[in-house]
């Protein structure tokens, strides 16, 4: 209920006098929110910390953007192609990387993202190298062009809502609970008959698939992408969003993504060293509230509504 009301209120913003610039920021924030939630599935639910989550997002951007420019701007066709490529790769590399855990997993996932980054630079006929992919058209749905601004913002919100509902269902399912069991105690999970590697592999693939949806939206929003979308610093950013917001909640990373985009915007206009300023806020929040912004909200909520039990 609260969630539906929130989504409708957000969807109404462009028609309630909110300036286009803010709508653009919100659109970017919500795309990042999809990406950060996909990361939460790995980090917060399965306990697999990755330093290479830009790979899934950037690859989705390249695949969807290239296809939209070269073949058709149809949103769902581009999404389907991007998903086929992102999920296909996730199945392949997930098979290998989910054999390891902990630091090894983090490092290998970083290495994979760096390989994609180098390919994006070197494979000029397709990726146009460092210049990046440009000239991606506006997306079309059922033949109608989705305009930049309010229409694209609505498309993003609709996607975000679907992704959130889908992931909420997933983490509450028996499968989702097995992921939490694996995060909590891998050996015990194995000892109750959970095929730990298979479950990690599936979680990895779903996570990449969802990140690919974000990447698809982003390439349409920016009308292109660059190799920087695959850079390790982007992987760092999405980790920051998720941890800042509070992992293991889905909702937290969403808030984290919004906070990230708006704080970055605030700080870049005020401070030269915006990353330092943001870093400080990040450290303070995470130290004071290990469960992130979501933890702050949960506390405020409990303070407002003292236990009814």
């Amino acid at each position: 209920m609260l969630f539906a009301a929130g989504a409708i209120a957000l969807a109404a913003l462009p028609y309630a006098g909110v300036p286009p610039f803010t709508i653009t920021l919100l659109t970017e924030a919500f795309i990042f929110a999809i990406w950060a939630m996909s990361l939460d599935l790995l980090v917060g639910y399965t306990g697999l910390v990755t330093f290479g989550h830009a790979a899934a997002f950037g690859l989705g951007s390249y695949a969807a953007g290239y296809f939209a420019r070269e073949v058709t701007a149809d949103f769902f066709a581009a999404l389907l192609v991007a998903e086929a490529i992102v999920v296909g790769l996730a199945v392949t590399i997930g098979f290998v990387v989910t054999r390891v855990s902990g630091v090894a997993f983090a490092i290998i996932s970083l290495a994979i993202a760096q390989v994609l980054f180098q390919i994006a630079i070197a494979w000029r006929p397709v990726t146009e190298g460092m210049d990046g992919l440009v000239g991606v058209p506006l997306p079309k749905i059922a033949g109608f062009t989705i305009d930049a601004g309010a229409e694209f913002y609505l498309l993003t919100i609709a996607t975000l809502v679907l992704v959130y509902l889908g992931l909420s269902r997933l983490v509450a399912s028996s499968f989702g609970r097995t992921l939490q069991a694996i995060r909590t105690n891998e050996e015990r999970a194995a000892a109750i008959g959970i095929n730990v590697r298979l479950h990690k592999w599936i979680a990895f693939t779903v996570s990449w698939g969802v990140a690919g949806i974000g990447g698809t939206l982003m390439v349409f929003m920016k009308a292109g992408t660059t190799p920087m979308s695959l850079h390790w610093s982007e992987s760092g950013n999405v980790l920051v969003m998720a941890i800042f917001g509070g992992v293991g909640t889905l909702f937290g990373p969403m808030i984290g993504a919004v906070a990230f985009v708006f704080l970055r915007d605030e700080f870049t206009t005020r401070f030269e060293a915006w990353q330092l300023a943001f870093g400080l806020v990040f450290v303070v929040v995470v130290l004071a509230f290990p469960s992130g912004l979501a933890g702050i909200f949960a506390r405020a909520w409990r303070a407002l509504w003292p236990t009814r039990s």
Binding site: S173, F175, T178, I192, G193, H199
Partner: peptide
């Protein structure tokens, strides 16, 4: 939940991704 996880595992529910575990 510790025990229910094991029960669901035995009931072959581990890969069910939609139905709520609860």
């Amino acid at each position: 939940e510790n025990v229910a996880l094991a029960a669901r595992s035995r009931l072959g529910q581990n890969l069910r991704m939609w139905r709520r575990a609860s």
